[in-house]
Amino acid sequence: MRRETLFNFTLAGGLLGLAIVAWFVDEPFVITLLTKVFIFAIAGTGLNLALGNGGLVSLGHAAFFGIGGYAMAILASHAQSFEPMVIGPLTFDGTKSMPVIWLVAILASAFAALLIGLLSLRTSGVYFIMITLAFAQMIYYFAISWPAYGGEDGISIYVRNNFPGLNTLDPIQFFGLIALLLVIVLWLSSTLVRSRFGVALDATRQNAQRVTSVGLSPFTIRLIAFVISGAITGLAGALYADLNRFVSPSMLSWQVSGEIMVFVILGGVARLFGPLAGAALFIGMEHYLGGISEFWQFWLGLLLLIVVLWGRGGLLGVVAGERRHG
């Protein structure tokens, strides 16, 4: 068995085992922490597709994360106040059903990614980093000054949304649901990377000119990857909003984009389990250091620096060596 596969199994098994142990000894806080790790792993898996496989360094994925969150909050807030939404001549009832909310979150963030991608993918390099940041900031300021849905204060949802057959307020059941979603997203991502499209995407990152010369359009390939990436991150946003039962513009802030990016780089860029490893390490450290020192971010910063300077390729790079190609 390859060391990377072994590490992936150990990591996923370890986290799941930890959740089960926490359930037995009745530590709901640990389960909630693990749920957060898994949700950010989904968001990171989305970003990884653009950033790792596509080489598209987006510093604007908070936009999709936040749009997913707002999709959930808008639908659920209409449902909890029993006021239908009016969009032009049409009216919609809100909903508290998770599958519907997920679908709306995915579609909304995919649509946003399509628009942002169409404009941003004309640029490359640092300019791409900055233009994606600019679009995310636009949406951030729009959310702050949009009084209909809470403005700066955000929206609270009193009860977590429903999933058929589950009691989502029970931490372990909600965790199980998220874990299942993470498995589906990871499977989807690995299938996609290994498909013909994934090969084309990899080739586009390495040499766009050659891709053009065999008759493919790098722009279209990148755009599709960016849209899928945004959609997955949007789904994670809806889940995160449901975990906290709260949405505010801070979900759209550039720090969130930075954090999701840190998860990916910390775990290992373009590695399937990189985002999960990164999110687990970061959130774990955040929690652990927060317990010992009031100034835990100082130590976290130093730790991150050490990882970048001496641990190239992130956690997975250290554990399993260089990424294998092909």
């Binding site: 990016m261 780089i265 860029v269 910063g301 730790l303 991150l304 620096l305 190239r312």
Partner: peptide
């Protein structure tokens, strides 16, 4: 650029 972004974020 990725490493630079991460390292300076840590800073």
């Amino acid at each position: 650029h990725l490493d630079q972004v991460l390292a300076t974020f840590a800073l």
